[in-house]
Amino acid sequence: MKTIRIFLRDLKGTFRQFIAVWIIVVPVVLAFIIGLATPGASDTPIRIALLRGENPAQASYMEIYAGVELFNDMAALEKRVLERDDIAAIVPDGAGGYVILTQGNEPDYIISAVKALKTYWEQGVLADPSKVLFHDFGRTDPPLKITLVTALVLIVTVMSGMLISINIVDEKVDRTIRAIRVSPVPLTSFVVGKSLTGVVNSLVCGALCVLAAGFFGVDFPQVLLILLSASFISFVVGFMAGLSSNDFISAMASLKLLLVPFVASILAAELISAGWQWLFYWSPFYWAYDGVKGVLTQTARWSTVLRDTGLTMALSFVAYLLFYPGIKRKLV
Protein backbone atom coordinates (compact mmCIF):
# COMPACT_ATOMS: atom_id res chain seq x y z
CA MET A 1 0.00 0.00 0.00
CA LYS A 2 2.88 2.35 0.78
CA THR A 3 4.26 1.72 -2.70
CA ILE A 4 0.91 2.56 -4.31
CA ARG A 5 0.56 5.71 -2.19
CA ILE A 6 4.03 6.87 -3.21
CA PHE A 7 3.19 6.12 -6.84
CA LEU A 8 -0.11 8.04 -6.71
CA ARG A 9 1.52 11.04 -5.06
CA ASP A 10 4.31 10.98 -7.63
CA LEU A 11 1.81 10.68 -10.48
CA LYS A 12 -0.24 13.61 -9.15
CA GLY A 13 2.88 15.74 -8.85
CA THR A 14 4.04 14.76 -12.31
CA PHE A 15 0.77 15.63 -14.01
CA ARG A 16 0.69 19.06 -12.40
CA GLN A 17 3.53 19.95 -14.76
CA PHE A 18 2.54 20.62 -18.34
CA ILE A 19 5.82 19.23 -19.56
CA ALA A 20 5.01 15.77 -18.15
CA VAL A 21 1.86 15.67 -20.24
CA TRP A 22 4.05 16.48 -23.22
CA ILE A 23 5.98 13.24 -22.83
CA ILE A 24 2.75 11.37 -23.56
CA VAL A 25 1.33 13.77 -26.12
CA VAL A 26 4.35 13.98 -28.46
CA PRO A 27 4.61 10.23 -29.29
CA VAL A 28 0.82 10.08 -29.67
CA VAL A 29 0.84 13.02 -32.11
CA LEU A 30 3.71 11.34 -33.93
CA ALA A 31 1.75 8.09 -34.15
CA PHE A 32 -1.19 10.05 -35.55
CA ILE A 33 1.06 11.62 -38.20
CA ILE A 34 2.50 8.19 -39.09
CA GLY A 35 -1.04 6.89 -39.47
CA LEU A 36 -1.86 9.69 -41.90
CA ALA A 37 1.42 9.98 -43.76
CA THR A 38 2.49 6.42 -44.46
CA PRO A 39 1.59 5.42 -47.98
CA GLY A 40 -0.54 2.46 -48.94
CA ALA A 41 2.40 0.11 -49.07
CA SER A 42 2.39 -3.16 -50.98
CA ASP A 43 1.76 -0.90 -53.91
CA THR A 44 3.25 -2.04 -57.17
CA PRO A 45 7.04 -2.12 -56.78
CA ILE A 46 7.40 -0.11 -59.97
CA ARG A 47 7.64 3.64 -60.13
CA ILE A 48 8.18 5.24 -63.48
CA ALA A 49 9.14 8.79 -64.46
CA LEU A 50 7.79 10.04 -67.80
CA LEU A 51 7.90 13.30 -69.74
CA ARG A 52 4.65 15.23 -69.49
CA GLY A 53 2.64 15.26 -72.74
CA GLU A 54 5.26 13.26 -74.63
CA ASN A 55 3.04 10.16 -75.07
CA PRO A 56 -0.29 10.45 -73.22
CA ALA A 57 -1.41 6.94 -74.24
CA GLN A 58 1.75 5.43 -72.78
CA ALA A 59 1.33 7.45 -69.59
CA SER A 60 -2.29 6.33 -69.22
CA TYR A 61 -1.31 2.68 -69.68
CA MET A 62 1.55 2.89 -67.19
CA GLU A 63 -0.61 4.65 -64.60
CA ILE A 64 -2.86 1.59 -64.37
CA TYR A 65 -0.01 -0.68 -63.26
CA ALA A 66 2.73 1.55 -61.85
CA GLY A 67 3.25 4.73 -59.87
CA VAL A 68 3.84 7.35 -62.55
CA GLU A 69 5.49 10.74 -62.03
CA LEU A 70 5.43 13.28 -64.86
CA PHE A 71 8.14 15.88 -65.50
CA ASN A 72 8.22 18.91 -67.77
CA ASP A 73 11.77 18.43 -69.01
CA MET A 74 14.65 15.96 -69.09
CA ALA A 75 16.67 17.81 -66.46
CA ALA A 76 13.89 17.50 -63.87
CA LEU A 77 13.29 13.89 -64.83
CA GLU A 78 16.97 12.96 -64.49
CA LYS A 79 17.17 14.76 -61.15
CA ARG A 80 14.26 12.64 -59.91
CA VAL A 81 15.83 9.38 -61.15
CA LEU A 82 19.00 10.25 -59.23
CA GLU A 83 17.14 10.56 -55.90
CA ARG A 84 17.69 7.91 -53.20
CA ASP A 85 14.66 5.72 -53.94
CA ASP A 86 14.30 3.31 -56.85
CA ILE A 87 12.54 4.92 -59.79
CA ALA A 88 13.24 4.33 -63.48
CA ALA A 89 12.26 6.51 -66.41
CA ILE A 90 11.01 5.64 -69.89
CA VAL A 91 12.09 8.32 -72.37
CA PRO A 92 12.33 8.67 -76.16
CA ASP A 93 15.57 7.23 -77.52
CA GLY A 94 15.74 9.75 -80.40
CA ALA A 95 15.12 7.04 -83.03
CA GLY A 96 11.36 6.70 -82.65
CA GLY A 97 11.54 4.21 -79.80
CA TYR A 98 11.93 4.39 -76.06
CA VAL A 99 14.72 3.61 -73.65
CA ILE A 100 14.71 2.84 -69.93
CA LEU A 101 16.71 5.34 -67.89
CA THR A 102 18.03 4.36 -64.45
CA GLN A 103 20.44 5.73 -61.87
CA GLY A 104 22.43 2.52 -62.11
CA ASN A 105 22.11 1.17 -58.58
CA GLU A 106 18.51 -0.12 -58.67
CA PRO A 107 17.88 -3.74 -57.64
CA ASP A 108 17.54 -6.23 -60.52
CA TYR A 109 13.89 -6.92 -59.78
CA ILE A 110 13.01 -3.26 -60.35
CA ILE A 111 14.76 -3.24 -63.72
CA SER A 112 13.11 -6.55 -64.70
CA ALA A 113 9.69 -5.24 -63.71
CA VAL A 114 10.09 -2.01 -65.76
CA LYS A 115 11.38 -4.02 -68.73
CA ALA A 116 8.35 -6.34 -68.46
CA LEU A 117 5.88 -3.47 -68.21
CA LYS A 118 7.43 -1.66 -71.19
CA THR A 119 7.29 -4.91 -73.19
CA TYR A 120 3.63 -5.49 -72.26
CA TRP A 121 2.79 -1.94 -73.36
CA GLU A 122 4.65 -2.36 -76.67
CA GLN A 123 2.85 -5.68 -77.28
CA GLY A 124 -0.52 -4.19 -76.32
CA VAL A 125 -1.20 -6.68 -73.51
CA LEU A 126 -3.99 -5.74 -71.10
CA ALA A 127 -4.89 -7.24 -67.73
CA ASP A 128 -7.63 -9.88 -67.96
CA PRO A 129 -9.56 -9.74 -64.65
CA SER A 130 -11.12 -13.16 -65.23
CA LYS A 131 -7.71 -14.81 -64.87
CA VAL A 132 -7.11 -13.94 -61.24
CA LEU A 133 -9.32 -14.08 -58.16
CA PHE A 134 -8.12 -12.15 -55.11
CA HIS A 135 -8.90 -12.98 -51.48
CA ASP A 136 -7.78 -10.99 -48.48
CA PHE A 137 -7.97 -11.02 -44.69
CA GLY A 138 -9.19 -7.44 -44.28
CA ARG A 139 -5.91 -6.16 -42.87
CA THR A 140 -5.70 -2.70 -44.32
CA ASP A 141 -2.77 -1.22 -42.39
CA PRO A 142 0.34 -0.86 -44.57
CA PRO A 143 3.52 -2.66 -43.44
CA LEU A 144 5.50 0.59 -43.24
CA LYS A 145 2.99 2.04 -40.79
CA ILE A 146 3.13 -1.15 -38.70
CA THR A 147 6.95 -1.10 -38.59
CA LEU A 148 7.09 2.58 -37.62
CA VAL A 149 4.41 2.34 -34.93
CA THR A 150 6.00 -0.84 -33.49
CA ALA A 151 9.37 0.94 -33.30
CA LEU A 152 7.69 4.02 -31.77
CA VAL A 153 5.95 1.94 -29.07
CA LEU A 154 9.28 0.33 -28.14
CA ILE A 155 11.08 3.70 -28.18
CA VAL A 156 8.41 4.93 -25.74
CA THR A 157 9.20 1.89 -23.57
CA VAL A 158 12.92 2.63 -23.51
CA MET A 159 12.37 6.33 -22.91
CA SER A 160 10.04 5.47 -20.02
CA GLY A 161 12.87 3.35 -18.62
CA MET A 162 15.10 6.40 -18.89
CA LEU A 163 12.47 8.46 -17.06
CA ILE A 164 12.44 5.93 -14.23
CA SER A 165 16.23 5.90 -13.90
CA ILE A 166 16.41 9.69 -13.99
CA ASN A 167 13.71 9.94 -11.28
CA ILE A 168 15.73 7.57 -9.07
CA VAL A 169 19.00 9.40 -9.67
CA ASP A 170 17.24 12.70 -9.01
CA GLU A 171 16.18 11.40 -5.59
CA LYS A 172 19.76 10.28 -4.95
CA VAL A 173 21.17 13.69 -5.90
CA ASP A 174 18.56 15.40 -3.67
CA ARG A 175 19.51 12.94 -0.89
CA THR A 176 15.85 11.97 -0.48
CA ILE A 177 16.88 8.33 -0.54
CA ARG A 178 19.05 8.92 2.54
CA ALA A 179 16.10 10.53 4.29
CA ILE A 180 13.91 7.55 3.44
CA ARG A 181 16.27 5.27 5.38
CA VAL A 182 15.11 6.93 8.61
CA SER A 183 11.41 6.84 7.68
CA PRO A 184 8.98 3.89 8.13
CA VAL A 185 8.80 3.50 4.31
CA PRO A 186 11.04 0.66 3.09
CA LEU A 187 13.60 1.84 0.50
CA THR A 188 12.37 -0.73 -2.03
CA SER A 189 8.77 0.51 -1.72
CA PHE A 190 9.94 4.06 -2.28
CA VAL A 191 12.00 3.22 -5.36
CA VAL A 192 9.32 0.93 -6.83
CA GLY A 193 6.65 3.56 -6.16
CA LYS A 194 8.73 6.20 -7.94
CA SER A 195 9.31 3.81 -10.86
CA LEU A 196 5.63 3.04 -11.45
CA THR A 197 5.14 6.43 -13.14
CA GLY A 198 7.45 5.31 -15.95
CA VAL A 199 5.65 1.97 -16.23
CA VAL A 200 2.25 3.69 -16.46
CA ASN A 201 3.67 6.13 -19.00
CA SER A 202 4.91 3.25 -21.13
CA LEU A 203 1.57 1.45 -20.92
CA VAL A 204 -0.75 4.44 -21.46
CA CYS A 205 1.40 6.14 -24.07
CA GLY A 206 1.93 2.85 -25.97
CA ALA A 207 -1.82 2.14 -26.05
CA LEU A 208 -2.64 5.71 -27.13
CA CYS A 209 -0.02 5.50 -29.91
CA VAL A 210 -1.69 2.35 -31.23
CA LEU A 211 -5.08 4.08 -31.25
CA ALA A 212 -3.79 7.38 -32.64
CA ALA A 213 -2.15 5.57 -35.57
CA GLY A 214 -5.57 4.15 -36.43
CA PHE A 215 -5.17 0.50 -35.40
CA PHE A 216 -8.80 0.11 -34.39
CA GLY A 217 -9.17 -3.47 -35.65
CA VAL A 218 -6.47 -5.02 -33.46
CA ASP A 219 -7.18 -7.30 -30.52
CA PHE A 220 -6.95 -4.84 -27.59
CA PRO A 221 -6.51 -7.38 -24.78
CA GLN A 222 -3.52 -8.67 -26.79
CA VAL A 223 -2.21 -5.10 -27.21
CA LEU A 224 -2.48 -4.40 -23.48
CA LEU A 225 -0.81 -7.67 -22.52
CA ILE A 226 2.15 -7.16 -24.82
CA LEU A 227 2.46 -3.50 -23.73
CA LEU A 228 2.44 -4.64 -20.11
CA SER A 229 5.36 -6.96 -20.78
CA ALA A 230 7.14 -4.17 -22.70
CA SER A 231 6.61 -1.79 -19.78
CA PHE A 232 8.17 -4.46 -17.56
CA ILE A 233 11.36 -4.00 -19.60
CA SER A 234 11.22 -0.25 -19.01
CA PHE A 235 10.80 -0.89 -15.29
CA VAL A 236 13.78 -3.27 -15.10
CA VAL A 237 15.95 -1.11 -17.37
CA GLY A 238 15.15 2.08 -15.48
CA PHE A 239 15.41 0.44 -12.09
CA MET A 240 18.84 -1.05 -12.82
CA ALA A 241 20.24 2.08 -14.47
CA GLY A 242 18.87 4.31 -11.72
CA LEU A 243 20.08 2.26 -8.79
CA SER A 244 23.51 1.62 -10.25
CA SER A 245 24.17 5.32 -11.00
CA ASN A 246 25.00 8.10 -8.58
CA ASP A 247 24.73 10.96 -11.05
CA PHE A 248 22.90 11.75 -14.27
CA ILE A 249 25.85 11.13 -16.51
CA SER A 250 26.40 7.62 -15.11
CA ALA A 251 22.68 6.99 -15.65
CA MET A 252 22.99 8.19 -19.27
CA ALA A 253 25.99 5.91 -19.72
CA SER A 254 24.11 2.87 -18.39
CA LEU A 255 21.14 3.66 -20.57
CA LYS A 256 23.26 4.07 -23.68
CA LEU A 257 24.71 0.62 -23.04
CA LEU A 258 21.16 -0.71 -22.76
CA LEU A 259 20.21 0.94 -26.05
CA VAL A 260 22.58 -1.37 -27.92
CA PRO A 261 20.51 -4.55 -27.43
CA PHE A 262 17.38 -2.50 -28.12
CA VAL A 263 18.53 -1.24 -31.52
CA ALA A 264 20.25 -4.53 -32.40
CA SER A 265 17.06 -6.50 -31.67
CA ILE A 266 14.90 -4.33 -33.92
CA LEU A 267 17.44 -4.43 -36.73
CA ALA A 268 17.76 -8.20 -36.33
CA ALA A 269 14.00 -8.72 -36.45
CA GLU A 270 13.69 -6.59 -39.59
CA LEU A 271 16.86 -7.30 -41.52
CA ILE A 272 18.41 -10.64 -40.60
CA SER A 273 17.23 -13.82 -42.30
CA ALA A 274 15.13 -16.31 -40.35
CA GLY A 275 18.07 -18.70 -40.02
CA TRP A 276 20.07 -16.20 -37.93
CA GLN A 277 17.28 -14.80 -35.79
CA TRP A 278 18.17 -17.18 -32.94
CA LEU A 279 21.24 -15.03 -32.25
CA PHE A 280 18.87 -12.48 -30.68
CA TYR A 281 16.57 -14.79 -28.75
CA TRP A 282 18.29 -13.68 -25.50
CA SER A 283 17.02 -10.13 -25.86
CA PRO A 284 13.65 -9.21 -24.25
CA PHE A 285 13.45 -6.33 -26.78
CA TYR A 286 13.42 -8.89 -29.61
CA TRP A 287 10.37 -10.67 -28.18
CA ALA A 288 8.62 -7.42 -27.33
CA TYR A 289 9.13 -6.20 -30.91
CA ASP A 290 7.92 -9.52 -32.29
CA GLY A 291 4.87 -9.38 -30.02
CA VAL A 292 3.88 -5.77 -30.80
CA LYS A 293 4.38 -6.29 -34.53
CA GLY A 294 2.41 -9.54 -34.50
CA VAL A 295 -0.51 -7.86 -32.74
CA LEU A 296 -0.48 -4.85 -35.09
CA THR A 297 -0.29 -7.01 -38.23
CA GLN A 298 -3.14 -9.05 -36.69
CA THR A 299 -1.25 -12.26 -37.41
CA ALA A 300 -0.63 -12.98 -33.69
CA ARG A 301 -2.60 -15.73 -32.05
CA TRP A 302 -3.00 -15.93 -28.29
CA SER A 303 -0.36 -18.67 -28.14
CA THR A 304 2.26 -16.41 -29.80
CA VAL A 305 1.23 -13.38 -27.71
CA LEU A 306 1.59 -15.41 -24.51
CA ARG A 307 4.96 -16.76 -25.72
CA ASP A 308 6.28 -13.26 -26.55
CA THR A 309 4.89 -11.78 -23.33
CA GLY A 310 6.27 -14.60 -21.19
CA LEU A 311 9.73 -14.49 -22.78
CA THR A 312 9.91 -10.68 -22.57
CA MET A 313 9.11 -10.72 -18.85
CA ALA A 314 11.20 -13.79 -18.06
CA LEU A 315 14.31 -12.50 -19.86
CA SER A 316 13.93 -9.06 -18.23
CA PHE A 317 13.66 -10.76 -14.86
CA VAL A 318 16.75 -12.88 -15.55
CA ALA A 319 18.67 -9.70 -16.44
CA TYR A 320 17.46 -8.16 -13.18
CA LEU A 321 18.59 -11.19 -11.16
CA LEU A 322 21.98 -11.16 -12.88
CA PHE A 323 22.69 -7.49 -12.21
CA TYR A 324 20.92 -6.89 -8.90
CA PRO A 325 23.59 -8.33 -6.54
CA GLY A 326 26.15 -5.84 -7.88
CA ILE A 327 23.68 -2.97 -7.64
CA LYS A 328 22.72 -3.95 -4.09
CA ARG A 329 26.36 -3.89 -3.04
CA LYS A 330 26.60 -0.34 -4.39
CA LEU A 331 23.48 0.73 -2.51
CA VAL A 332 24.74 -0.66 0.78
Binding site: G40, A41, S42, D43, T44, K131, V132, L133, F134, H135, D136, F137, G138, R139, T140, D141, P142, P143, T297
Partner: peptide, 10 residues
Protein backbone atom coordinates in the same frame (compact mmCIF):
# COMPACT_ATOMS: atom_id res chain seq x y z
CA UNK B 1 -4.98 -18.16 -60.29
CA UNK B 2 -6.25 -17.28 -56.84
CA UNK B 3 -4.22 -14.85 -54.76
CA UNK B 4 -4.37 -14.72 -50.95
CA UNK B 5 -3.43 -11.17 -49.93
CA UNK B 6 -3.56 -9.37 -46.58
CA UNK B 7 -5.90 -6.46 -47.45
CA UNK B 8 -3.41 -3.56 -47.51
CA UNK B 9 -2.52 -4.05 -51.18
CA UNK B 10 -3.62 -1.30 -53.54
Amino acid sequence: YEYFLQGNET
